[in-house]
C-alpha cells in the first residue's frame, strides 16, 4: 500500500489481481505452507458454515409449512435433486449428495466472494481444477466400473456412417479429455474476470471526472456478478450431471 501511495501522484494505479493473492490469515508473514490457514481457507470454511446455516439450521424445525429459511433450503434441495433426476435418471439419484456438495460449495463461495473485501476461493484454478478433476476421475472410473469396456462405446458413434466413425471417435476422445479443462477454467475465469473488472472500475473511480461513470459501472458489474455467481454454480452442476449421465448410460 505504501508503494501505491507513491504511484498515485503519477495517475491511475490498477491492481485488479491483488485481491486474489493468497496470504496467511493470522500474522504478517507471506510464507504459505500446505497447512497454513490463509484467507482462502477462511472463506472456504465460511462457505461450509453458510451451507450448514442454510441447510441444517434452516430446516431444523422440520415444519410442514416452511419458514423462509426452510423454503430456501428446500428450494436448493429441489433444484439440484430435480436436475440430477431429470438428467441422470432414477439411477443417478444416489449420487445426488455428491452433486449437492459441489453445488452448495460453489454457490456459497461465489456469493460470499461478492462481499466487499472478501476473498473468492472459486476464482482460483487450484480449487476449480480439483473440483473438475474430481468429477472427471469419478465419472471415468464409474463409467468403467458400471459398464466395463462397453463404456468406450461413448466414443463410437453408432448412429454415424461407418466411414466417419473413426474420425468422430478421435474428436469425441479429445473432447472428453478437454472436459475437465473447460469445466474448471469456465468457473474460475468467470468469477475472476468479474472481480477484476470491478477492481478496474474502482481504480477509475479515483479520477474525479469519470468517477460517477465508474461507480455506475461498479454497480452494474456487481449486479452482473450476482447473476454470474449463481449461473456458474448452476452450469458447473448441470455439466457434472451430464458427465455422470454419460457414465451411467454411455450408449448414444
Amino acid at each position: 500500500m505504501a508503494t501505491e501511495a507513491a504511484k498515485e501522484e503519477s495517475g491511475l494505479v490498477f491492481h485488479p489481481m491483488d485481491q486474489f493473492i493468497i496470504k496467511p490469515f493470522f500474522g504478517d508473514g507471506s510464507e504459505v505452507a500446505w497447512y497454513t490457514v490463509t484467507n482462502a481457507t477462511v472463506w472456504m470454511f465460511l462457505a461450509v458454515i453458510a451451507t450448514f446455516l442454510l441447510l441444517v439450521l434452516g430446516s431444523s424445525k422440520r415444519s410442514v409449512i416452511p419458514s423462509r429459511m426452510q423454503s430456501v433450503a428446500e428450494l436448493a434441495y429441489g433444484f439440484v435433486y430435480k436436475m440430477v433426476e431429470d438428467i441422470c435418471g432414477k439411477d443417478g439419484v444416489k449420487y445426488f449428495p455428491y452433486i449437492m456438495t459441489l453445488f452448495m460449495f460453489i454457490v456459497c463461495a461465489n456469493f460470499l466472494g461478492l462481499i466487499p473485501t472478501s476473498f473468492t476461493p472459486t476464482s482460483h484454478f487450484a480449487v476449480t481444477v480439483v473440483l473438475a478433476l474430481a468429477v472427471f476421475l469419478t465419472v471415468t472410473i464409474l463409467g468403467f466400473v458400471k459398464n466395463g469396456a462397453s463404456f468406450l462405446s461413448l466414443f463410437w458413434v453408432a448412429s454415424a456412417p461407418l466411414a466417419l466413425r473413426p474420425i468422430l471417435a478421435i474428436i469425441e476422445l479429445i473432447s472428453y479429455f478437454v472436459r475437465p479443462v473447460s469445466h474448471s477454467i469456465r468457473l474460475a475465469g468467470n468469477v475472476m474476470a468479474g472481480h477484476a473488472v470491478i477492481k478496474v472500475f474502482a481504480g477509475f473511480a479515483a479520477l474525479t471526472a469519470v468517477s460517477p461513470i465508474a461507480i455506475v459501472g461498479i454497480t452494474a458489474m456487481y449486479g452482473l456478478e450476482v447473476l454470474v455467481s449463481f449461473i456458474q454454480a448452476y452450469v458447473f452442476t448441470i455439466l457434472t450431471c451430464v458427465y455422470l449421465k454419460d457414465a451411467l448410460h454411455p450408449h448414444h
Binding site: 493468497i22 500446505w34 490463509t38 482462502a40 481457507t41 476461493p121 480449487v127 480439483v130 473440483l131
Partner: peptide, 8 residues
Amino acid sequence: WGNQIFWL
C-alpha cells in the same frame, strides 16, 4: 496450490 487443495 498445495495449501488450497488441502483445505478445499
